[in-house]
């Protein structure tokens, strides 16, 4: 048996140490980017902490009978959160009942039916619509939707949860349409060809192949829009039909305050909210509930998406 002898090379012209300054620059970039990421994390923690701190005071000092009472009259010590939660669910429900079919329909049309040229014109318009300030939509809901639509379906021509919900729905249509369209367009054409090649009609291809394949994006668009609808403040504040107090109601035709509208009206009053018992702290309590609600919603969404997603 022979052993292979390896002779180390003594070639001194090779230098693999690299330039110190370049390695330092690399480290610098690394730190800057890590810091940028850390800032948003720190801000999130600060938000939660400030919410919890004031909400804590509220939770430990409030008369709980007043938290489940006749309505939201914070300056008089009645903090009925179910008034706010029910109003929020009503406006969000109405908004999604409008935004989901219209947004999804628009997305399917743009992605599967519209010509390239039509899409090139309409998609940017849709995105401009998404940028309309919510205060404008709020006025639109109050001055047009309420008298022209709500009053004709049995409501009043002033502000109501129905008017606010329709306003929020209009606001979220472009959001649903845009995200859904992106996710359906991301499906490869080979899927559409495979389906057509089997003698499937367009509607079969869309409902049996394209939509299932892009379900995670569609659910994402629904969740983002729902979160947006729950968190929307200006439209429900302007068109919700209640100024700063509200009696409990479960009718969409009544005026009421959503969680966000209640917070906005409390903190925008002319008299200071501080010092009125637990009025100031109640803001944070409502904020905490709002935060928990959207968190749970997002968690459900993530679970759902993981369960139904068709993997490529």
């Amino acid at each position: 048996m022979t052993t292979l002898e390896v002779k180390p090379s003594n070639d001194l012209s090779v230098d693999l140490t690299g330039k110190q300054s370049r390695r330092r620059k690399e480290l610098f970039v690394h730190i800057v980017l890590a810091a940028a990421g850390a800032v948003s994390l720190i801000i999130s923690i600060l938000i939660i902490w400030s919410l919890l701190k004031e909400a804590w005071t509220f939770i430990f000092n409030v008369e709980w009978a007043n938290v489940w009472s006749i309505g939201w009259f914070p300056r008089r010590g009645f903090y009925d959160v179910k008034t706010l939660i029910v109003a929020t669910f009503i406006t969000t429900g109405i908004a999604m009942a409008i935004a989901t079919p219209l947004g999804l329909g628009a997305a399917i049309y743009l992605s599967e039916y519209a010509s390239k040229r039509f899409r090139a014109i309409v998609k940017p318009i849709l995105e401009i619509l998404a940028g309309v300030p919510s205060v404008v939509i709020g006025f639109f809901a109050l001055s047009w939707v309420a008298p022209q639509i709500v009053s004709r379906i049995g409501g009043s021509d002033g502000g109501s949860l129905m008017a606010a919900g329709i306003g929020v729905g209009i606001l979220t249509i472009p959001l649903v349409a845009s995200i859904s369209e992106d996710s359906m367009r991301a499906d490869p054409d080979s899927l559409r060809e495979a389906s057509s090649g089997l003698g499937a009609r367009k509607r079969h291809t869309i409902f049996s192949v394209i939509i299932p394949a892009s379900i995670s994006g569609l659910v994402a668009s629904f969740i983002v829009a729902t979160s947006r609808a729950i968190g929307e403040t200006m439209v429900v504040f302007l068109a919700g039909g209640a100024a700063d107090t509200a009696i409990f109601t479960s009718s969409a035709y009544d005026g009421s305050l959503t969680m966000t509208a209640a917070m906005a009206s409390l903190s925008s009053g002319t008299d200071s909210v501080v010092g009125e018992g637990l009025t100031f702290q109640s803001l944070f309590f409502v904020g905490l509930i709002l935060f928990a609600l959207t968190l749970v919603l997002n968690m459900i969404a993530t679970r759902f998406v993981n369960k139904v997603r068709e993997r490529y």
Binding site: S190, L191, E193, A194, S195, V209, P212, A213, E310, Y312
Partner: peptide, 8 residues
């Protein structure tokens, strides 16, 4: 087709 294109 040229590339296998099963549905997901």
């Amino acid at each position: 087709f040229q590339k296998p294109n099963p549905f997901p």
